[in-house]
Design a binder for these strands. Structure first.
Lengths: 236, 236
DNA sequence: CGGGGGTTTGAGTCCGTTCAAAATACGTGG
DNA sequence: CCACGTATTTTGAACGGACTCAAACCCCCG
């Protein structure tokens, strides 16, 4: 799955293609290429931990990362999923606060670390970059506010449907039919939509009985996206 | 309460003093002063409405503004309170999306509108300003993630205590004793912590019986902040 | 083939919601 | 300054969705 040869040059990195790094010119890409520290993370490995000082940002080249936040009583929320091509760790970097969440590889990931000094010189040499990051963080803020409203406006069934649709968008059906694998445990899904694993199971189970869903382990198939969208939006 | 003479010059505006606008030099302040459009809003008036196109940002000079978000079923969340000295409308401006929430004056407010063209020329002439806005939005994102976790980790009683402590910080006790007025209805409080007005009433009522709180209309007194902090953090 | 983590299923409980009515506060005009 | 009408707040009682606790199950991997 992981092709290490591709991790060597920022110029060919999919992250480069995402809007965020458009502002960076070729000279700066050279600089970036020298400064970055690429690494492979296995499932379960932490990229950074809640409480850590922030020493730079990360680019996710391959794989999916979970941002997990824990409170003092041990309650957990999975705050965000960061997919391949996205930048990781911006909130902490630009708010100048320690990491407020842990970043954990949900599958084998290829990720580059960009130390603060390199980030700063990129920001200095590329006027548009700051604006790109600002847009990214502003979009994240919108998503967080959306999640906030969903969480106490919608029952678990609707939130589960929304989650499935979201996962469908990101782990798109490949050639083999319309099914896709998600690297999330029931626990992860529960943390993501703000409930318990048992409750997720029950919601999924019910959807299967209604023919809205077919699961087998972590492989999922949604026979009708239209029907699933209807479930996501239905009122009780 | 509202002193209109003070709204005339950005140089004397309290918003200027907040970290965000530090980056702006005196020349640019002159520009800003000419471009801005100051206005007084009465309680209940909208500064902008969910769905509006974004045409600039706002500076809150006096008063408190509520950011309210509604979904298609009419569910409401009060996403954030913006106090005097803060900038309003950054998320939409920098994410280049329409307003996702309505901004409503909770009390008589004095607010300046800064049109996009002026914002852009300020950003061009003051390199540090973009970074300031980025920090602001990143901090907001952290707050939103915190709220997300609190909402499904803590019962209403704890969230209410946290709200009271937050309000205490922002509507600080004046000379007359240790009590303060909040411009929030029960409904507002409920939307803010993600519950119903009746539930807020009951929580406040219980705290009064325990001597943790004294209320009279919208005037609130917290006899012991330490005790209230304990309530906020207590496990069931 | 024997662990062991993750998942499923079940039953009972509880916190917060819902609906509805009474009480109170508040702004307005007389 | 008081009376009135409306909005907000309070109180009560019943209901229900999701949680808790716990046991059984299943798959994956060694």
């Amino acid at each position: 799955m992981i092709d290490e040869s591709k991790t060597l040059f920022c110029a060919t990195c999919p992250t480069r293609r995402s809007a965020e790094w458009n502002a960076v010119d070729d000279v700066a890409i050279g600089l970036l290429n020298r400064a970055k520290a690429p690494r492979i993370y296995q499932r379960g490995e932490l990229i950074f931990a809640q409480g850590d000082e922030c020493e730079g940002i990360f680019c996710v080249e391959q794989g999916t990362v979970a941002l997990r936040r824990v409170d003092r009583d041990g309650n957990v929320a999975l705050v965000n999923l960061i997919h391949a091509g996205l930048t990781l760790g911006l909130r902490s970097y630009f708010s100048e606060t320690p990491r407020q969440a842990s970043a954990e590889a949900l599958e084998t990931c290829s990720i580059c670390f960009i130390p603060s000094e390199a980030v700063e010189s990129l920001l200095n040499s590329n006027a548009g970059l700051c604006r790109s990051f600002l847009k990214h963080v502003a979009l994240d803020l919108g998503a967080a506010h959306r999640a906030l409203l969903q969480k106490d406006a919608l029952p678990v069934r609707n939130r589960t449907a929304l989650l499935l649709l979201y996962l469908h968008d990101h782990y798109n059906p490949t050639a083999n039919g319309d099914s896709f694998r998600v690297p999330l445990t029931r626990q992860d899904m529960a943390e993501l939509i703000g409930t318990r694993p048992e409750t997720v199971t029950r919601a999924l189970h019910q959807m299967q009985e209604e023919g809205l869903l077919a699961t087998s382990g972590r492989t999922v198939e949604i026979p009708s996206l239209a029907a699933m969208r209807r479930v996501a939006e239905e009122a009780d």
